[in-house]
Every structure is written in structure tokens, then in C-alpha cells.
Design a protein around this nucleic acid. Structure first.
Lengths: 350, 350
DNA sequence: TTTTTTCATGGGAACGGTTCCAATTTTTTG
DNA sequence: CAAAAAATTGGAACCGTTCCCATGAAAAAA
């Protein structure tokens, strides 16, 4: 049995015209007689004709589709970036397919191959916490498929990217903790592989230095972003001879998991330990007490990344393969102060 | 300039053999001399050959890729279903692409066309709250592309689906509210278009009936699942002459938004108003007070849907287009009782 | 050694669409 | 009304891969 799909050949046969004419009629080519065009369009509708994108992409080597790949989406950060991306790309007439690596390097490589083998026109991506080898990304570049990174950006690739000033934001966050009188500020950092980890930690270190607080290596731990580890490390902090009086966490899930430990131990937030997170996840406002955190303009990050990709796509069409420095856009963050760092009476009442 | 992609023809030319042999060597066909196979594989590696899935899918009319489409992913429900789906499908050797409708019918139709035009082998889907016309889904069926629905299932389509017993779960949730002595139980229902809305409301109604509580239409409002509306409707409930003493919300985001209103008004939860949500979103345990809710086995829902799709795909290969009733799998829910309905002293201390 | 079978390879059609070029028809112009 | 120009249409190549069929070579059987 033949395929159930209607093809332009089926239409051509029925109308006794050539498939070229059918193709022209369907794509809106000017040189088709009105009468013919109408007949084709009508028959196409009744036969439920739908253009085969595989055949099209195959022959044109371009698909009008872009991919976005995110390492996870259990927090609201990545989903909301995606919504921003879809916003812009759909308005520009592009389709968007989403891939998720589940924080697995292997998954990332295979998703990348999937996207490339389907000839997407461009890819917006944030890499996993495991990624140390970037060959699968440079491959895309060699193939002429433009990439735009956001949030997690490989530091030795010349590639357009959208980020926030992690260093500055972390600096401010820690300065805020110092401002409310904290001296023993612990830091739960992320995996070394992420730029964010390094930048935020540097911000932490420099804020301490500026205010004359000596750096205490016992109070800084890098970890792999799994909930179990937070619990272990936070317990470790609390069991120190002189435990910390504040925590700056690499992100909100970390902060929230740490808060659980603090509360379970019967300590008060912020009185005993003030806590600051990062990214202003939706849950930051829900948790008790409300979590002070660095807000990122997630939807804007998505929109900006999408616009940068559109620029790349246009440049590519014009064959403008200039080997200049790839653009970086830095969007502003904002420290959102909530109860987890409000000491003087001003605690939200429930 | 030629395409930057390496093709089997490039390899064939370099090795001075035919493309058929190259193809066979690459796909692991048995009838290739070991010597030849090795040469091909080596050259393919050095030339960074990567099979063009468009050409492949185009010629075979099957792509080894499935699509999953979800209406939104700002809550943890859908992302965690997706993870379950990926789990099973990747193990079965399938690629997974994700689409998001953003609760827009238009987006749903265009995503559906996108997936079909890319010849995905099957689609797992939950429709938007706006969807009333299901032609874009029956089209897939007519094309022989198997569908599996979950959570939001069109009620007049004979299609495999994975659900929970919304009716029973709602019944239990409301019975629980009655059990703690509530008589004026309000219900914020979802849009009429969703089966879930209707089933959960029926559960609500029948629980009231069973316990001899007369149904009060003033206490039931259907709404469109937008946060602004919750606020308006919840205020409306609280301004009633005799306001409700409990709320059963269609889902957790609704419950949480409603709780905001209650707290802003200075009322206590659960003393003045007890609240129950649905789905056990990650935020349900974070919000203060902890939200009583109906837990759904999200990852299992995803895994089950994926397995059903695999069954469909196998049946299709065997040409087993039996026109029997499509299977429905109902997975168990569990009422998670938290502080938002704990009256007798047992309130979690912070 | 001859015949048969198996193995390895090459050739070419097919998949569905676009696009260029040539051919035909229609329209315009002289 | 014939010639030129423009509009419309058909034919064929092309995109990368698989797969069927044919062919030739090598191995096994007679």
C-alpha cells in the first residue's frame, strides 16, 4: 500500500498538470494562472495535502526550524527562557523544537547530533554541568549552523552568547549579607565546569576581600547540584565548630534545599543563618521564609538569544562569515530582598 | 560552494567504491568485506561524516523520532512527565523532540503540523485548555501516526491514553475537607474544555452529596487558569456574605495563588480556610503553609505513555490496525496531607 | 574440473519537493 | 495580422540515503 500522505504528484496527476505547476501554485509563485492556482489550492485542501518538510529540507538544506537545548527544566529558569525564545522565533516565522539533556553529557552529544542531522538552521543552547568537551558544538560551527549560548557558556569558544554579570551579581548579594552584619558567610558553589560557578565564587571572594573579611576555605564547597549533596554539605557547615551565620548558594534550588536542613536542625532563618540564592526561581517567593535572591530577566534572555540567532541566520544567508569576535550581551540582574535576609523585625507575617 | 556536509558519495568517491557499499558498511549490513568496512568507517570518522536524517527519513518515511507536546511547563508536572517519556524512549532507541503550545490552540495546530511534516513516528500529547476542535489530532491518526494522550484527553476520540482517576481523587480530597469539619467548600474549577475539570467537579459534587451537604452554586467557579483570575475569584469568594471555610482548587498553582489572597486578607490557613490543590507540584511543599494536594505519579505517567506509544509503533509495523477500543491506563493518585488542612495543633513549626 | 551456492559490490530507482531551462501558449505591439 | 514579448506550463536535474536487482568473484559442492 502506498503512503497515506498526499503529495504534489497526486495533485498533479488528478488535475492532469505537471508537479512543477502544482509546486508553484502551492508556494505562491507569481507565474501561475489564477484558474490553475485555484484548482490546485482547492484540491490540496480537500486531499489534506501537507508539505513534507523532510523532502523540502532535504532538497533545500534548510528547514526554517531552530533547536533549543536546555540542561534541565525542573526549575522555572529554563522553561521561561524557552518561552522567550519561542516568542521571537515564531514571530519571525521559525519553528522551534526543544531538547533536554537532563544534565547528561551523553544526552547532549546525541541531541546535538539529532539537531544537526535534521538540518536545523540554528541552535540556542545551555550546556550540562558535565560538559568539558565542546567538540559537538564546534562541529555545528564547522557545518555552518549558527549557535547562540546562554547562561552556561563555554569559555574557550568564540560564540555569541547571552549572560548576566554573574560576578557583579554575586558580589552584590554577598555585600548585602555583609551589610546585615554577617561575617561567616558560607558559599555552596556549583561544579567547576560551569563559568557561572567560577564567576559567582569570584564575586563572593572579592566582596569578602573588599570588606576585610578573611577568606575561610572551610566555608566554600563546590558540589554537583544534586539535592542529596546539598543536605550533606549543609549539615557539614552546621556541624562546624563555629558554624556560618549566612549562606550564599549558587542557585535557588540549592538555597531551598539548604534551608530545609537549617529548619530541620531547629535554627532560625535569617536570625541564625541568612540565606541568599540565585535566579529568582518561582519557588523563591513561596518558600518560608521568602528567599532573597538575584533575579534574572529570563524571558529577556530567551528573546535576546533568539534575536542574536536571527542575526546570525541573516549574516549566513549573506555569506558574511566575518571572523570577528562573537557578540556577548549582558543583561541586568536585580537583587530581590526577602525575609531570608531581613533581620530587623520586618519579617512577613502570615 | 558545495555543502559543508560529508555525504556517503564523498566517501565512495575517495575510496573508489560505490555509494551502496558505503551505505552498507555504515549501517552494518553483513555483506561487506571486513577490509572495506574498516576503510569506510575510518574515512567516515576522519571526514566527520554524519548521516543526513532528512534524506533518510525522506526515503524511508520513518524517522526514529517521536514528539511530545505539552501545553505549558512552568509547573513541574509536565517537565517531569517529559523526563519519564525520554527515559523509556531513549532506552528504546528513539529520539525525542519536545514542543510546547503555551496553552495556545493555534500553537498546538502549528506544532502538530510541524511534527507531522517532519514525519515523526508517533506523538505523545496533552492538549491546551483552549482546544475544542480535534481535527489536527485525527489528521495524525489518518496519516497513520500513532498518538497517545495523557492528562488532558479529548473525550470523543478513540485514542490510547494515560490518566489518573480524577473523579475519585477529587472525591477523596473533598471528603478529606469534610472530614476536618468543613461545610462550605468552595471549588475553583478549570475551563469546561478539559475533561479533568468536569471529572474533578463531579467528584466534588458527589462527595458533598454523599455527606448531605447541599450544593451551593455560588461556591463553584470555572476559570481560565490565569493567575489574575484566581485573585479576582478568590476575593469574590471571601467577600460573600458567608464566605467558604475551605477551598478545593483544580490544581496547585490555583491553590497557591488563592492562598496568597487569603493571607493578604489576614485570614488564617487552615483555621479560617482550609485549602486543597491537585498534582503535588514541587511548590506545594514549599508554600506556607504546606499545601494538601493530590499527588500524581508524573514520571510514571510519562513512562507509561511512552510504553503505550512503543506498543502502537510495533503494532503499526505489523500492520495490525485493529479497530478495537483504544487502551486507557489509569494510574493511582495519593492524597498528601499537609498543613493547609491540618487543624488540630499539628502545624509544622519553622 | 565443472556446477552451484554464497559473498561482495555496483547500478539505478525511489522518496517529495524546488528550480532552472526550454517549450508552448497567450498577450501585446508594430 | 505577423512578430515580439510576456505569461504559463512541462521536463528534468538535484538533494542523500536505502534497497532491490544484477553482476562478478570467490568458495563450496558435485
Amino acid at each position: 500500500m502506498k503512503s497515506k500522505y498526499t503529495t504534489i504528484i497526486d495533485i498533479a496527476r488528478q488535475l492532469n498538470i505537471s508537479k512543477s505547476t502544482v509546486s508553484r501554485a502551492l508556494t505562491g509563485h507569481p507565474n501561475v494562472k489564477e484558474h490553475t492556482r485555484k484548482a490546485v489550492l482547492e484540491l490540496a485542501a480537500t486531499m489534506e495535502y501537507q508539505r513534507n518538510s523532510l523532502a523540502l529540507g532535504f532538497s533545500k538544506h534548510t528547514t526554517n526550524t531552530i533547536g533549543i537545548m536546555v540542561p534541565e527544566f525542573m526549575s522555572t529558569y529554563f522553561p521561561s527562557v524557552i518561552v522567550g525564545v519561542q516568542d521571537v522565533m515564531q514571530a519571525a516565522g521559525y519553528n522551534v523544537v526543544i531538547c533536554q539533556q537532563n544534565e547528561s553529557y551523553e544526552s547532549e552529544v546525541s541531541n546535538m547530533k539529532l539537531l544537526l542531522s535534521y538540518c536545523v538552521d540554528g541552535i540556542i543552547v545551555s550546556h550540562t554541568k558535565e560538559t568539558r568537551n565542546f567538540d559537538h558544538f564546534t562541529l555545528a560551527q564547522r557545518r555552518g549552523v549558527p549557535l547562540v549560548f546562554f547562561n552556561r557558556v563555554p569559555d574557550d569558544m568564540n560564540v555569541p552568547n547571552v549572560v548576566v554579570n554573574d560576578y557583579e551579581a554575586a558580589f552584590q548579594a554577598v555585600e548585602h549579607l555583609i551589610g546585615i552584619g554577617r561575617k561567616r558567610i558560607a558559599h555552596l558553589a556549583g561544579p567547576e565546569s560551569l563559568v557561572n560557578t567560577r564567576l559567582r565564587r569570584q564575586g563572593y571572594l572579592d566582596a569578602l576581600k573588599k570588606h576585610g573579611i578573611p577568606y575561610n576555605p572551610d566555608l566554600v564547597l563546590s558540589y554537583d547540584l544534586t539535592t542529596e549533596k546539598v543536605k550533606i554539605y549543609m549539615k557539614h557547615f552546621l556541624d562546624l565548630e563555629t558554624p556560618p551565620d549566612a549562606l550564599f548558594a549558587i542557585n535557588d534550588p540549592t538555597a531551598i534545599a539548604a534551608m530545609e536542613v537549617v529548619k530541620a536542625k531547629g535554627l532560625r532563618i535569617p536570625e541564625d543563618i541568612a540565606v541568599v540564592g540565585f535566579s529568582n526561581d518561582f519557588s523563591a517567593q513561596l518558600v518560608y521564609p521568602g528567599l532573597t535572591t538575584v533575579a534574572q530577566p529570563t524571558a529577556d534572555i530567551g528573546r535576546t538569544a533568539a534575536e542574536m540567532l536571527l542575526t546570525e541566520l541573516k549574516a549566513k544567508v549573506k555569506n558574511d562569515y566575518s571572523i570577528k569576535k562573537a557578540p556577548t550581551v549582558q543583561l541586568p540582574t536585580k537583587l530581590i530582598i526577602r525575609e531570608s535576609t531581613m533581620v530587623k523585625g520586618k519579617v512577613k507575617k502570615h
